[in-house]
Simulated assay, not measured.
Amino acid sequence: MNMSVCASSSATSRAVKPAFWYGIPHGYAKLDMNPPRERMERLALELNALPTEQRLRASQVLQFYAGTVRALSAQNVHMCAVGYHPDDDGIVVSSTLTISTVSASGKNPKLVIASLAGTVAFDSDLRMRPLELPCGLGFLVEEKKHTVAPGRNPDNPEGPLRDDVWQGTIAATGSGTPDIILIQLVTPAVHLADVYREILLGVAHTVTFTDPAERASEQDESRVSSAEAVMRNDFG
């Protein structure tokens, strides 16, 4: 699974050093959670230049995007990405990946996670198992939900259409943060739950509190030092 490394910070300023880093799987497109004002103003100007019918449709999309970003930000979501992948029959299926943080309210986040794991274990509708991740302690919860199908009109006289979705959530923590990191993946492709579980676990295993750029620099320095030692041995 190909990954692109991304960073996340609880601060709104882009200049603040991220609290942790993670990988995004191949085939997922990130939603910009903090679009620059200039970009939104440029989009508004382009939207106003469209013909009336296209302008109305584009305006609805833009309003939906803005509302989605506000709702996600209110839930302290740092990253949201939408994935499109072909299944075994060549049909494209979608999924949504989010990474958020939850405050441990001054408590030890490891103890909070242990407590949550104990609570979830009593729910027979959930599948839960503990995890030992590179970043620290965690647990995985899986469930199948019957929910309103996205993109459908909930005000339909016959009632909103509903569909099954698979939802996987990993709660993790480590010494690098006082918060609990939540990684969640949701897809209507319930028959591919095993595949999406592996994607979710793959993302969780990339979470780190060490800047990958700094780690790469240290590795480069180590290789240079090793090369210098070999040269000293060869040439005295």
Rank of each mutant, 00 (worst) to 15 (best):
V203P: 01
T208C: 08
D164W: 12
E132N: 03
N76P: 04
Q60N: 12
V195E: 11
M33Y: 07
E142I: 00
D89I: 01
M33P: 05
A74Y: 02
R57Q: 11
E214A: 15
S9D: 05
A213Q: 03
D32K: 02
F20M: 11
S73C: 09
I199V: 15
Q60C: 06
E142D: 05
Q184E: 14
E221I: 09
N2A: 04
L192G: 01
A104Y: 12
S105K: 06
W166L: 01
R127M: 02
E198L: 11
K107M: 07
A216D: 14
V77F: 05
S95A: 14
K110E: 05
A213P: 01
T119Y: 03
K144P: 00
I183F: 05
V69F: 08
V120M: 06
A58G: 13
P36V: 13
V69P: 00
Q219V: 08
P130C: 02
G138A: 02
L50F: 11
E46L: 12
S115R: 14
L200F: 01
H26N: 12
L72W: 03
S95D: 10
S222N: 12
A227K: 09
H191E: 10
R232Y: 15
S8I: 13
I99H: 02
Y28R: 04
G236C: 06
A81Q: 13
S8M: 10
L31P: 09
E38M: 06
H78W: 10
T119I: 09
P51W: 09
A71H: 08
I180W: 05
E132R: 01
T119A: 07
V224D: 11
I113S: 08
Q75G: 05
V148E: 10
A11S: 13
H78M: 11
R55A: 14
S8N: 02
A229I: 07
S95W: 06
G151D: 08
Y65Q: 13
S73W: 06
N76Y: 12
G159C: 10
M33T: 08
G67P: 00
M231R: 15
G23V: 03
R232I: 15
G106L: 01
P35G: 08
V82G: 07
V186Y: 00
T210L: 14
